[in-house]
Nucleic acid binder design. Sequence first.
DNA 1: GCGAAGTTAATTT
DNA 2: GAAATTAAC
Length: 663
Amino acid sequence: MPVAKPEASDSRVIAHIDMDCFYVQVEQRKHPQLRGLPTAVVQYNSWKGGGLIAVSYEARNYGVKRSMRGDEAKEVCPEIQLVQVPVARGKADLNTYREAGSQVVSILARRGRCERSSIDEVYLDLTDAAERMLTETSPHSLETIIEEALKSHVLGITSREDGIDVKEKVREWLCKSDADRRDKLLACGVLIVADLRMQVLQETQFTCSAGIAHNKMLAKLASAMNKPAQQTAVPFSSVKGLLESFPIKKMKQLGGKLGSSLQTDLGVNTVGDLWQFSEGKLQERYGINTGTWLWNIARGINGEEVEGRLLPKSHGSGKTFPGPRALKNLPSVQHWLNELCEELSERLQSDLEHNRRIARNLTLHAHAYKPNDSDSHDKFPSKSCALRYGTLKIQEDAMNLFQVGLREFLDSSKVTQGGWGITGLSVSASKIIAIPSGTCSIKKYFQGQQPICSSSKPLEDGYIETTEHPSLSFSGDEDSTSVPIELPGQEASMQVPYFPCNGVDFGQEAAASTSGLTFCVGRESCSESNLVEPESTLPEEPRREPKTHALDQQVRKNPSVEKGKSSSILDFFRRADTNSPLQKQDQADKMQGRHQSHRRGSSQERETWHYKADEIDPSVINELPPEFQEEVRDWLRPLKRPNVVKGGSGVSIASFFSSTNKP
DNA sequence: GCGAAGTTAATTT
DNA sequence: GAAATTAAC
């Protein structure tokens, strides 16, 4: 779990930024009349007022807590303002919060390597920026130490002093000319973070809290110490005192079973309690890696790097169906899977369009029970397969995965009577890779077919996600270039399983129908293949609510239903020319008058380009016109190019582009 | 009227 | 490499 990494340098400057009750702030920005009022965000509200997922600090003062129900919150705070999470496709839709998080990230990434660790948390490595500040404009020569920085908490310096005095002490600490170099760097970090937080506030209206320390673990601890809208620094000298009495369960990674084991098995309740255990002893009990990690974090040692990743590693969409809402037949499962897959597909499309990334893996997970088997909870196996783009294909593949899982689930115990219930469903897309922008010939090909679309928002650095449906940003002639066809040899990798079903007979008919896969590619490129004309004269069928033979219905329905939803890869390549990520970055940097040094070598990009060619799922490429498949495969092989060396420090991203972009 | 933490993401096995 | 586990919020 935790990975032990020795600390390469104890002079890094790391910040952890944590948005204050983020969802509440997003809603308050949208509804300014809620500002200052006790407010909470709830998802759904029909049962006991919905579940709270974010609580404003005003409401916390009344004793309102997250994971209360709305009704409970009203009991302790009758005037609380409850705002509902947006609902789309019958489920909570978190997109507005994701977008707001992206907006924040794009600001925080300005001063150093930035890792988006969750929807509302970010780590920054400010070492370089702090060192630069130290040599160029050291704090003691700085006339205008920003007011915000003076409000900082500095552990060990500001403890139990009052008002004005504290500020003076902070000023003193910030400006101390004979301080330890590590402290000076930290002081620079404090100034930088104060500045960044003000920028975030100005540009987004969001407040956040921050911790500044020499590693991620300490920064994370510190950011939680003074909330909301405050920041806390951890000088090297105060680490021991901080950790000694710190509750072990509140350490990151120790909030679960590992932390409980420390408490129960070793009697460790604070980090200080861990000090008595040798590294060997901890390794003996928890394994080499975890043991070392524990020994280190007990001493404030944590070499984990800030990753330089501004985008999530996977996308998921899920929903629970508690108690009596459990799904008890295939059509209802299919209905909800379709909804979940539709959301997932939309987000994948957005990621492709804005970030040039492709997900290669689709996973389905479900929670299920059998009425007469108390053992059966959580036995439903998750299943995955290669991800194919296009809403319909994802829906179909997900349904197949579900059926495979359901069969295993039902086979796994002797209880064969009484049916089943599904209490949770989720689909997720993972193994995401970034792909380079189009080469010249591809570019020309698509330019020849289709004018480049400029109506979509040029998202800053691809950091910002949007809910705008990508296909909507195309003009209507999308229809004329997207034709569903069937390609041979492209069947879902999964065999269609026996249909266990409750009451409704799906049997052979449904099973047979699942082989009807559709692919959408440009018409010109497949004019000689087994092209199926779209039956465009038929009225469009509603996408949802498969009432009877849902699977069957799905594959039989008018292919034009999928219009504008498919050909996602092509959508991408059609427009993948004017803006390579680097060009985009340059443009953004120029517009904002900022330096480019950090992102250029960030591991976001390193990570992005360093994949193995044989990891690429051919089925993604196979959706392209055949004459381009080889060329795309070539792009996906950067490491095999002679002048691109894996991990080679002298090889720039730019040189990769110059070598691969030549016709 | 009953009944219910939901959702997302990353890591480990 | 798929699937289960863990954890955060």
